[in-house]
């Protein structure tokens, strides 16, 4: 079949089914926008994880005068402190850097952090324990540090900062799962809409297809116009969804969030653009597959 003939048939088919085609475009656009938003959220979570995990440390708090922990008999002795330090050193390349913070330093930092708050006046340097701040090559290796030092005398507690973040990431992951679930439901709606649109189109053109069959048109050439119509709608829908995703980046993330939350790393343009091919792929695959299935059912070969 010649391309010009196919193109002409496609044009007239789209015109005839205009409202249904429009419905299809909107439905594809909405569902793919949700898919795009979910992917965007996923990319954002990955980026933030990378950003934060690079900064998280393990804090090893040493016993102070008021400590009640099992390991603490009294204030940590210089000997005990040295042993903790040696213990950390013995972990080799797992531990990338060790920073010692004395009670006075901790107090100075505390005063800086809570400047202007009444709490500063009630807390003295004694209330803040001295600690080692340790940076690991891989945050997952926290368990190694914990196992090595938890029972060492003079260690009051070992804190994994990542734990504090994990709850936050759980919320973000939950949001992403929710967006994906809504997107899947919308995709299902799209699939049903495609199938129904194709069915209506096949019924409206049963005269045409019966003639095509009678003169010996191949199944492929009978079905192609219908599939191409659905495909055209999918491409338009995916295009709109892509614009939507790009707008989220430009008008929401860059214009609204980024200026206010300078300490958060947001998804980059290249990560946003990498989502677009997926939208087209998902849009094209779902429509082509569902229209083919529908044709198989409603267009007797």
């Amino acid at each position: 079949m010649r391309i010009s003939f196919v193109a002409r048939e496609l044009g007239s088919g789209l015109k005839r089914n205009f409202t249904m085609t429009l419905a299809l475009v909107v439905s594809v656009a909405v569902s793919l926008s949700l898919v795009g938003a979910a992917l965007l959220l996923g990319a954002q979570v990955d980026r933030m994880k990378g950003y934060w995990y690079e900064k998280v440390e393990v804090s090893i708090f040493l016993c102070g005068p008021n400590s009640t922990a099992f390991n603490c008999k009294s204030d940590v002795t210089p000997q005990e402190r040295k042993e903790v330090y040696e213990g950390l050193k013995s972990l080799g390349s797992t531990v990338q850097s060790i920073f010692y913070e004395s009670s006075d330093m901790a107090y100075a930092r505390f005063k800086e952090q809570f400047k202007g708050s009444a709490i500063v006046d009630n807390v003295g340097p004694d209330a803040l324990p001295q600690s080692f701040r340790v940076k690991l090559d891989n945050p997952d290796n926290f368990t190694l540090v914990d196992a090595a030092l938890a029972a060492t005398p003079g260690v009051e507690s070992i804190q994994d900062q990542r734990k504090l973040l994990s709850r936050f990431f759980q919320i973000l992951n939950g949001l992403q799962t929710f967006a994906l679930a809504v997107a899947s439901a919308m995709l299902l709606v799209t699939v049903l809409l495609v199938m129904n649109t194709v069915r209506v189109a096949a019924f409206a053109r049963r005269r045409e297809t019966s003639i095509m069959r009678a003169v010996g048109a191949s199944n492929m050439s009978i079905r192609l116009p219908f599939i191409l119509e659905a495909l055209t709608a999918a491409v338009f829908g995916a295009g709109l969804a892509s614009l939507g995703v790009l707008s989220i980046k430009k008008y929401f993330i860059d214009a609204r969030l980024a200026p206010d939350y300078t300490f958060i790393a947001f998804v980059t343009w290249s990560e946003v653009i990498a989502i677009i091919p997926w939208l087209f792929l998902i849009g094209v695959l779902t429509t082509v597959l569902s229209s083919s299935v529908s044709l198989r059912r409603y267009l007797r070969g």
């Binding site: 003639i211 003169v215 048109a217």
Partner: peptide, 11 residues
């Protein structure tokens, strides 16, 4: 012409 178009005859 439709009878010829759908089986791929040339213009």
């Amino acid at each position: 012409a439709f009878g010829m178009e759908v089986i791929g005859k040339s213009r």
